[in-house]
Simulated scan of single mutants.
Amino acid sequence: MAKAKKRAKAKSRSAELAPFDASEFLDNEEVIAEYLAAALEDPDPDVFLRAVANVAKARGVSQVAKASGLGRESLYKALAPGAKVRYETVRKVLDSLGVRLTVTA
Rank of each mutant, 00 (worst) to 15 (best):
82 G>S: 06
56 A>S: 14
66 K>T: 11
48 F>G: 01
58 A>Y: 05
33 A>G: 04
57 K>S: 13
15 A>V: 05
82 G>W: 02
67 A>W: 13
54 N>R: 03
80 A>Y: 02
29 E>T: 09
19 P>C: 01
15 A>Q: 12
30 E>G: 08
47 V>C: 05
56 A>G: 11
66 K>L: 13
7 R>S: 09
58 A>L: 03
51 A>Y: 04
69 G>W: 08
70 L>I: 08
19 P>T: 10
33 A>S: 12
37 A>V: 07
51 A>W: 03
9 K>S: 14
62 S>Y: 14
17 L>P: 02
18 A>D: 14
42 D>R: 05
69 G>E: 07
13 R>K: 15
68 S>P: 06
49 L>D: 00
33 A>D: 10
16 E>D: 12
25 F>K: 09
54 N>V: 00
16 E>V: 08
16 E>P: 03
36 L>R: 00
27 D>W: 03
80 A>H: 06
35 Y>T: 05
64 V>Q: 04
20 F>M: 04
81 P>R: 08
37 A>E: 12
20 F>K: 04
34 E>I: 06
75 L>A: 02
68 S>A: 15
69 G>N: 09
68 S>G: 03
15 A>D: 10
59 R>E: 12
44 D>G: 04
83 A>I: 03
55 V>P: 00
10 A>R: 15
69 G>S: 06
8 A>K: 13
24 E>M: 15
24 E>S: 15
16 E>Y: 06
52 V>W: 00
66 K>F: 11
33 A>V: 09
17 L>D: 10
69 G>L: 09
38 A>C: 01
75 L>I: 04
21 D>R: 14
63 Q>I: 11
9 K>Q: 15
45 P>N: 07
12 S>Y: 07
64 V>W: 02
46 D>V: 10
75 L>F: 01
51 A>E: 02
40 L>Y: 08
79 L>D: 00
15 A>C: 05
65 A>M: 06
27 D>E: 15
57 K>G: 09
33 A>T: 10
